[in-house]
């Protein structure tokens, strides 16, 4: 393979220091001004440290060890070209690891299927809040060898929200445009996309574990960049916040993609956003390789997409049949 095709010019810009271990830079740059969300995360972590010092000591040690092994490109100020910062990522990751180990008690299968180099992780999406994405990101750092950073393709809507959009960028997500996805893949990064989008995330209880219509864009990008697709499924997220209804007109009014009504939201206010402590069962399938013309008709691309979708449906079915319960 011609090495030049991996040489996208953006890395050249990443600064004289080039690719280095996150831990090196995490030590180097001065502590950045505390943002409200960072302070909130830190406050939560400190609270947990006093409640469960043992668990937190384990989490702190594991997160620091895994982050230290994460290969990240960054400039002299500690940011990668998309705004990811290992320093800013550290505490949110610890919080997510806490959820991963002690709240959702994630059982991850198929970590060995994770290929080296560029990869497009395609996952199902459910549970009103994108915690399935957060747990996949966390699992790819804690349980995959070597740890990989999953770059999430975020809804444009996220970018328009104060704090949320910025927070997303610092922990590695990017605006979900095809150009961003292609740029990341050409730099051999691991990208995660949810082709169901909000159709999956905000579906109602009656449609649980039914994969919604998949967008085709991810397959065109995989073909264009010769990227293997890693199917991933999360079982458990459907039960974390069962929605009776989605008030679409209200959602439109506030410019949100959906307005779900769950047993707790909006009746309990912000507290109603808390997911139920379900058990997450996560699987990475075997990588799927496709070759073809990325500009082919929808019917052809749709055929490839269907193969990914069928594979994911079978994986979901397998995990559903094998599970002993929703909460354990």
């Amino acid at each position: 393979m011609d090495p030049a095709r991996h040489l996208h010019p953006i890395p050249a810009r990443a600064g004289a220091r080039g690719r280095l271990k996150a831990a090196d830079a995490a030590a180097a740059p001065p502590p950045e001004t505390r943002r409200p969300l960072d302070s909130g995360v830190e406050w939560l972590l400190d609270a947990m440290r006093s409640v469960a010092p043992g668990a937190l000591a384990d989490i702190d040690a594991e997160v620091d060890a895994k982050l230290g092994r994460l290969s990240v490109s960054q400039n002299e100020f500690g940011y990668d070209p998309w705004g990811f910062s290992p320093t800013a990522f550290r505490n949110p990751l610890a919080l997510m690891a806490l959820l991963y180990r002690y709240y959702f008690r994630v059982e991850l299968e198929g970590a060995h299927n994770f290929p080296a180099g560029r990869v497009l992780v395609i996952a199902n999406h459910a549970g009103q809040l994108p915690l399935d994405g957060a747990m996949l990101i966390t699992g790819s750092i804690l349980d995959v060898q070597p740890p990989r950073l999953l770059r999430a393709m975020a809804e444009y809507w996220m970018q328009t929200l104060p704090f949320i959009g910025t927070f997303g960028s610092r922990i590695g997500s990017v605006a979900g445009t095809p150009q961003n996805c292609e740029d990341l893949l050409r730099r051999d990064e691991a990208v995660i996309a949810f082709p169901e989008g909000v159709r999956g995330l905000n579906k109602t209880w009656g449609k649980r574990y039914q994969l919604q219509r998949f967008g085709l864009g991810f397959m065109r990008l995989a073909l264009a960049t010769d990227t293997p697709i890693l199917p991933a499924v999360v079982v458990g997220s459907e039960e974390q916040a069962p929605a009776f209804a989605n008030l679409a007109p209200l959602a439109r009014l506030i410019g949100a993609p959906a307005f779900p009504i769950t047993p707790t939201f909006p009746f309990l206010g912000p507290l109603g956003l808390l997911p139920l402590p379900v058990k997450y069962r996560v699987s990475f399938g075997e990588p799927l390789h496709f070759t073809g013309n990325p500009h082919d008709e929808d019917a052809v691309i749709g055929g490839f997409v269907d193969r990914v979708r069928r594979e994911m449906a079978a994986m979901i079915e397998r995990r559903l049949r094998a599970r002993s319960g929703v909460f354990f």
Partner: peptide, 9 residues
């Protein structure tokens, strides 16, 4: 714009 890719060509 919020939907801009990070690296516009």
């Amino acid at each position: 714009l919020p939907e801009n890719p990070s690296y516009m060509h």
